[in-house]
Amino acid sequence: MSEMIQQGSKDRLNYYVCKDRKNMGKVSANLAIDEIKKILNKKEEVRIVFAAAPSQNEVLYYLTESKEIDWSKIVGFHMDEYLNLPLDSDQWFKNYLQKHVANKVNMKAFHFMNGMADPEEEIKRYTHLLLEKPIDLVCLGIGENGHIAFNDPHVADFEDPDPIKVIALDQASRNQQVNDGAFKTISEVPTHAMTLTIPPLISAGCLVCTVPGETKKEAVSKVFNQPIDTSCPATILRKHDNAHLILDSESFGG
């Protein structure tokens, strides 16, 4: 992979440092494509959880442009969704995943969370869909506070008994939505969301974690250097047997 400037591992976590976001996206997509092809050699269906965030733009672009994937055998899920945004809001994660994945390829299915539904009923419905069969692949990122999905440090639980739950977003998560350009001010950012918890995410056969940008440098440093602990939820990636962390030169920071 000539797109990389460094490669290594920390505990069980493989990491790849790329010179820029474009090359990072290519490396991430290639890792995901290789995994999808391996799974389709053994099974008739691949179940993938996708993150919805600007950090995923490049990997999703190269993934959906690939001619190597039989999308008719892929079932998609998303890992979190806001609660109670206006119905016509552009900021729903469902809208992002429709634009960047579901509307670009002919998938077997994409199961969307409904942030306007009664949360208790929606969690029951989505939990049933999620747990019907094992999750094969998660395409994720890391938050500025080290979260994976919306498992912020104050609610993260490596042994969470609930596969999906409603959480109150911490200040760092809400600030990140402004930093990412999704919202103009923090007052516009929802205070609550539904999220897959950590156990179903790390139960997946493969994790492809794509993390670009200067604003993620501190979180990435914690993943490499801190003990595996919920104070930085993404440190749990170091315990997974098939996890890949793909960075650009800005997020790696040396």
Rank of each mutant, 00 (worst) to 15 (best):
D88M: 09
A32V: 01
E81N: 03
K38W: 05
A52I: 04
I228A: 05
G76T: 14
V105D: 06
A149T: 02
N145H: 09
I39N: 02
D152Y: 03
G253P: 05
D241P: 12
T195D: 00
E120W: 06
L85D: 01
Q56T: 12
H111V: 10
L40K: 08
D70C: 06
V138F: 04
Q56W: 11
G181F: 07
I148W: 02
V27H: 06
A51E: 09
Q177N: 08
E121H: 07
M194H: 00
L201H: 10
A219L: 07
V220K: 01
K133Q: 11
S251C: 10
C209S: 14
L13F: 12
M4K: 10
H78P: 07
A117K: 14
K73G: 02
V208H: 15
T191N: 00
L201A: 14
A172D: 00
T191S: 01
L131A: 04
H78I: 03
V101F: 14
V59D: 02
I164R: 00
Q177H: 04
A117W: 12
A51S: 14
Q176Y: 02
D118N: 09
V208N: 13
D90K: 14
I39K: 01
H100W: 13
A29Q: 09
S55Y: 10
D180T: 02
L247Q: 10
A204Y: 06
D11R: 04
H192E: 00
N57F: 04
E44P: 01
R125N: 07
P199K: 09
K239S: 12
E214I: 15
L40D: 08
D70P: 01
E132T: 15
E132K: 01
A109S: 10
E44N: 07
C206V: 13
S173P: 04
N242E: 07
K37W: 04
N106Y: 04
E121C: 04
Y96C: 02
A234L: 12
L137N: 15
K26R: 11
K37R: 12
E3L: 05
Y62G: 06
N114M: 07
V75W: 03
L130Q: 08
H240M: 11
V105I: 11
M107I: 13
A219T: 03
V101N: 10
K104I: 14
D248T: 14
S66C: 08
I39G: 01
P199V: 06
E45G: 06
S28Y: 05
K42T: 15
S55A: 13
Q177R: 06
N145I: 10
D88P: 01
R21P: 09
W92N: 00
P163D: 10
T230R: 03
